[in-house]
Simulated scan of single mutants.
Amino acid sequence: MSHFDYKSFDSIDLQSEFFDSLRDDYPAFDEWFAKKSINQEKAYVLYNDNEQITAFLYLKIETELDPLISPPLPREKVLKVGTLKIQAHGTRLGERVIKKIMDNATERNIHTIYVTIFDKHEHLISILLKYGFRHWGIKSGAAEEELVLVKSLDPVDMLGDIFHDYPLFSTENSNCWGLSIYPKYHTKLFPDSILKNESYDLLSDIAPTNTISKIYLSAMKCINEMSQGDIVLIYRTSDNLGPARYRSVVTSICVLEEVSNIYSYTREQFLSYCSKGSIFTLTELEYFYNSKKYPFILRMTYNISLQKRVTNEQLQEVVGLSPAYWGCFSVTESQLLKILTLGEANKSLVRLGSHA
């Protein structure tokens, strides 16, 4: 089982060898850790199946400027990534941590995130830059200067790039769709959208769970009408534990990166393209390629997990949706906003089109 625990510092094993590299980078790390323990502060910790730490994330709200950062950060409440370490092992864990940071800022309604990092951590820096962090300046005061990277969650700073803007998205020049997914696939692909009655055993430390970009295979013809940048509502179908009006729910918001067709790939290309972002085994993917059972391939970013799931009943009676087919259906901008309201999502993440 693998999922983030939000734990107090005094319940985390400081003697774990996981923290050795942090001691090397920060000679006063143990003293810092002890102060956090005394103050009963908390951090996100991810353990593997052997109860070993594979990721550690400490986040802190700051309201005063850090005098060691040049140029100064904006004079506003910011979220600082105080300490971040990932034990990289080929499962896209860095992306899962990036989403955790974004989600935390979104929940607290904070529009600026920053992290200080040594330039030797090239892989982690590359992930941060991909998802919209930018070089800001330098933090001095230690034996070695650190880079300062800043991420804006203000829609005015959007560039129209799906990755740079993440998790922000725009309805301008975009259509919105509902797309169904079976429960057995849902939570492995969308781990932060787990339902309360589901087991955390589903949340394995595997690439399809961790990656921000998700692969979806389908035979539904309406996918031919979808385009890059379209908004996709993930509609988890009923698990048959109760009436579908209450068990079929919208859980997540995604943005479409790309639509392609299985016939445009060789076998090797298809397996390479789908292996990291889908929850299917290599054997299953080979079967899909040979059978062409699901010819349409969607790749989309996992932007928002709704705080409250929006039921089929609400979609019909409050939102006003009544599609002929719930597998894939069109959603208007006004209906999207109603769904975001019902789902208690932070609507500041959405830049509305000029027609709104």
Rank of each mutant, 00 (worst) to 15 (best):
T311S: 12
S252I: 00
Q335I: 03
M226L: 09
I162Q: 01
N240H: 12
E31Y: 11
I98C: 03
S238G: 06
D66I: 03
D161T: 07
L93D: 05
K85Y: 06
R23V: 11
G132P: 01
M226S: 06
L168W: 00
A345S: 04
M300N: 02
D192H: 02
E107D: 15
L336V: 02
V249H: 02
R267E: 15
D119V: 07
K188G: 10
N109M: 09
V148D: 04
A244S: 14
L153I: 01
L340A: 06
N104E: 15
N290Y: 13
R247C: 06
G277M: 06
N346H: 01
Y216S: 05
S37A: 14
V148I: 10
S260I: 08
L84C: 11
Y131A: 00
I138N: 15
F29V: 08
Q314M: 11
L84P: 02
I206Q: 12
Q52D: 14
A55R: 02
T251R: 04
R247V: 06
S213V: 11
E344C: 06
D5G: 14
I262M: 09
I297D: 04
S348D: 12
L168H: 00
W32S: 10
E268H: 12
D154Y: 02
E64V: 09
A142I: 09
I110V: 09
L282N: 15
Y131F: 13
D24V: 14
L65P: 02
F133K: 00
I253G: 00
S227T: 11
V148M: 06
N290C: 11
I125L: 07
L202H: 14
S126K: 14
G94L: 03
G90F: 07
L315M: 13
K184Y: 08
E51Y: 09
M1F: 13
